[in-house]
């Protein structure tokens, strides 16, 4: 599989796409973790939702 004279452009564009997608996934995963942690901290400190259910229990 040869990419011809413009191999660097092709590889760069695929790498750029991979990088942006990985960054998006990482951002969403880290955000999920930090929101869960804050919810758990708030519940441990005794605040409960008006519905009485646990906010972290989403399964």
């Amino acid at each position: 599989m040869s990419f011809g004279p413009y191999a660097s452009f092709i590889v760069t564009s695929y790498l750029a796409a991979a990088l942006v997608v990985v960054l998006l996934i990482a951002w969403i995963a880290l955000d999920y973790r930090s929101q869960k942690r804050r919810l758990r901290e708030l519940e441990d400190s005794g605040v409960s939702r008006r519905s009485g259910r646990s906010a972290t229990d989403i399964k």
Partner: peptide, 30 residues
């Protein structure tokens, strides 16, 4: 498909963020 997956996951984060916000406001009020 990638967009749908990421979008659903980001929506879940956003809902959790709103719950955090609501709980923090209740805590402040209490």
């Amino acid at each position: 498909l990638l967009f749908v997956t990421l979008h659903l996951a980001a929506m879940r984060n956003e809902i959790l963020r709103r719950r955090v916000r609501a709980l923090q406001m209740m805590q402040a009020r209490a």
